[in-house]
Amino acid sequence: MSGPFTIIGGGVCGLAMAAELSSRGVQVTVIDPKGAPGDHACSWWAGGMLAPDCEGASAEPEIVRQGRKAVGWWESQGAAVHHEGTLVVALYRDQSNLATFARRAPSAATLSKGQIAEQEPHLAERYSKALFLADEGHLDPRATLTALHAKLAQRGVRFGDEITGQVIDCRGLAARDSLTDLRGVKGEMLVVRCPDMTLSRPVRLLHPRFPLYIVPRGDGEFMLGATQIETRERSRATLRSVMELMNAAYALHPAFGEAELLEIGVDARPAFPDNQPRIRRIGEVIYANGLFRHGFLLAPALAQMTADLVLDGKIPEVWYEDYRER
């Protein structure tokens, strides 16, 4: 097949798909009733961590393998990816969590207090031990989506409402109408401004009750995330969740106590029962969905596999399901 293609949905999945296909020289239309990237897309609320090794401590090995493609892919699309790695810490009483994490994320190096001070001076005040995953990166999801949208338009990708050619459905949770095993996992996040605090890279706090990650967004802004609640509710941040995130941030470093609260975000991630994405053919439509908490991490691999499938007829090595009647 050589196109044209119509992609439905303009979140991270749809835009990555459009980028991959259009970079291979085919005509692409993206349909998103809301237009440009914004808060209607679940990926708008993402952390933007490209951290396959960290995820590997609790996610399937395939997610790690496919996720390793993310940093290079986003850079090839002109995204500003920060190559600062990820720092993982735990409070003194939760040190056993750090040991477990190190065992399950074998590429993690152990840092001493002095080494932490070189990376994140503010954290060396409080932590004498940390794990460091050097190969990981992060990006700003909103800036990335907005820039990619503009770039695609320049490249000739149409943003319209007319379906032409093969349909690739990237609607996320809205595709529940066709994907009956897709569920929502609600996430709540915060954006704060904390000029007293400097972090150069995402920091994860391992905590038995309130695990937290903090992603620096520049200009003293930080994204704090994220809860994971089994419901497809896309609104209504609860006081409990917000309090837990804030508590964890305050525990990570008391400087966050003085942070200004800029934003409370809520949405629901689309996920299949094994929390891994799928490329699924139903009838004439191809669905790419189920990125769960791995939108920016796995959208590149999913887009590449889908493009290989529709352009070269190459069956994806993983995550592919053909539901067409034979």
Partner: peptide
């Protein structure tokens, strides 16, 4: 308490 919002939204997990 934790997982349900007590309405339709949590039904997917209950079904599982």
């Amino acid at each position: 308490r934790r997982e349900a919002s007590g309405d339709q939204a949590g039904q997917d997990f209950w079904a599982l």
